[in-house]
Amino acid sequence: MTTTPAIRAVNLVKIYQSGRGLPVPAVRGVDLTVDPGEFVAIMGPSGSGKSTLIHLLGGLDTRTSGEIWLDGKRADTLSESGWAVLRREKIGFVFQFFNLVTNMTVADNVELPALLGGASPRHARERREYLLGELGLTDRAAAAPAQLSGGEQQRVALARALANQPRLLLADEPTGNLDSRNTRDVLKLLSRVHRQGQTIVLVTHDARVAGLADRVVSLLDGEIVDDGAIVRRRGPGGTAGDVVELRG
């Protein structure tokens, strides 16, 4: 039995027009297939096209050519409103710069996608309480986004993206604004939802995040230069001392 891929991108191309009208290729012929339940990290230097790629996959930017299939359905030909429906029903997206609704509380920001997705108010509230708890934000529920630090806003953005229990979680640098301690909460939540079967595709330069992934895709100048599994070299076990010795 073959499973339908969660994502299938075929020869995906994105060319921007520069200010002087010159074409600037950002993504140059990407083929990418992601299976349901898979966790894929996209890495690469800045300007390599990673953010553009994740935006294309979420329908937040339109492709120049190529195809995008989500859950076996063609998506690149959808209208803007078609994409909006698809995102509401199936995709959670964590933006690099959060995009929280400024005149709503943290709690409402997180509950909104679940309510729009058809969840009951009670279910939306329980889900929100769970996610904010996991991310150490319970006592910030009544605050406005502007009252939060960058790191707190980033965690709220993750909670919002997961509120709807989306089929697919897409994220652009979800730990870019976090210190070590807050990153740990995000890592824990990502690995927990992944274990529960969540499909995740995210852009990151943070090796702790990429280390959780099943597979890493490396981009350079808009093309995939490496795509492979992260294998564990040894079985679980050992102490910090072994690692220190290994690296010494």
Binding site: L187, A210, G211, R233, G238
Partner: peptide
């Protein structure tokens, strides 16, 4: 990255 994964598990 596989080393990083081990460190995370550790």
């Amino acid at each position: 990255l596989s080393l990083m994964r081990e460190l995370g598990e550790l």
